[in-house]
């Protein structure tokens, strides 16, 4: 709701103790300096060649494909989850909410181990899946699964926040006017929270694109099948640091675009 914000009082600077500026500046430097250092290392002359090499193109294509699929899965599963969390009063809902948010704060490698013990060949479900002839080990599906696992909370949090902010007034009016639950959801609720849904989806996409730890632990690393951009950066660093930096720049650009896209929306 930035449009409604009153004009900033002119005396803000005087109300803060001066010394606050020092740690604030150090903090800003800590965030900016590594990015500047990375960009300074980019071999601009070879950049086109590095970004269009066979392995780079394979990793980029795979990353875009898997992150898009993961985002679609996040929307498919996350929208109902956010609706349940924001609009129902089931017992134990706050426990469920905390659990859903867990992947957000979990170290990715831990997520990878957890996925391994659930869906791996020797995992909780892996045996049954194997019996059905389904094996996700070392497949692109494993990458999408890992990305969805880590990205889902972003969509749920964004959308649940938007749902709570929007309130139920419009929905109640529509219901009084005779609209059924499905019509209310489709014609009232979702259009109202659309900006929140979009920013949640964009954040999920970015998180899925950057997924590394869970993919490495759970899916493996094979060009064109499971080696996404972050895994390619990690491997290239071993022999060709220039290629790693070039691909890293690509990820930074995507991340910056995502931040701009999300900050530009009124919902956040």
């Amino acid at each position: 709701m930035r449009g409604a914000r009153p004009a900033r009082p002119a005396s803000t600077g005087a109300e803060l103790p001066r010394w606050v500026l020092v740690p604030a500046a150090v903090g800003a430097l800590l965030v900016l300096l590594p990015l500047v250092a990375l960009v300074a290392r980019v071999p601009w002359a070879e950049l086109p060649a590095l970004l269009t090499s066979e392995s780079s193109r394979a990793a980029l294509a795979l990353s875009l494909r898997t992150a898009s699929a993961a985002t679609a899965l996040c929307v498919l599963l996350g929208v109902p989850m956010a609706l349940v969390l924001a609009r129902t009063a089931l017992p134990g809902l706050h426990v469920l909410r905390s659990l859903v948010l867990l992947p957000l704060v979990l170290p990715p490698v831990v997520g990878g181990l957890a996925l391994l013990y659930a869906f791996g060949r020797r995992g909780l479900l892996g045996g049954q899946l194997e019996a059905l002839g389904v094996s996700v080990a070392f497949t692109t599906a494993a990458v999408v699964l890992a990305q969805t696992f880590v990205a889902l909370p972003f969509l749920v949090v964004s959308l649940e926040g938007a749902l709570r902010t929007a309130g139920r007034r419009h929905e109640e009016v529509a219901a009084v006017l005779g609209a059924g639950p499905w019509t209310v959801l489709r014609r009232v609720t979702l259009p109202v929270v659309l900006p929140g849904l979009v920013s949640g989806a964009v954040l999920s996409f970015a998180r899925a694109l950057g997924e590394f730890g869970a993919t490495l632990t759970f899916a493996g690393s094979l060009q064109g099948t499971t080696r996404t951009l972050p895994l390619e950066v990690y491997l290239q660093r071993e022999t060709d640091p220039d290629a790693a930096v070039a691909l890293a720049l690509l990820l930074v650009v995507v991340a910056a675009a995502v931040v701009v896209a999300v900050r530009g929306r009124p919902a956040l």
Binding site: L116, G120, F138, G220, S221, L222, R227, L231, Y234, E238
Partner: peptide, 16 residues
């Protein structure tokens, strides 16, 4: 099916 970046990751895929 996978080309890992370190030998410990290869071993991990086998022990798991």
């Amino acid at each position: 099916v996978s080309e890992e970046g370190s030998v410990t990751d290869v071993l991990g895929k086998v022990t798991s």
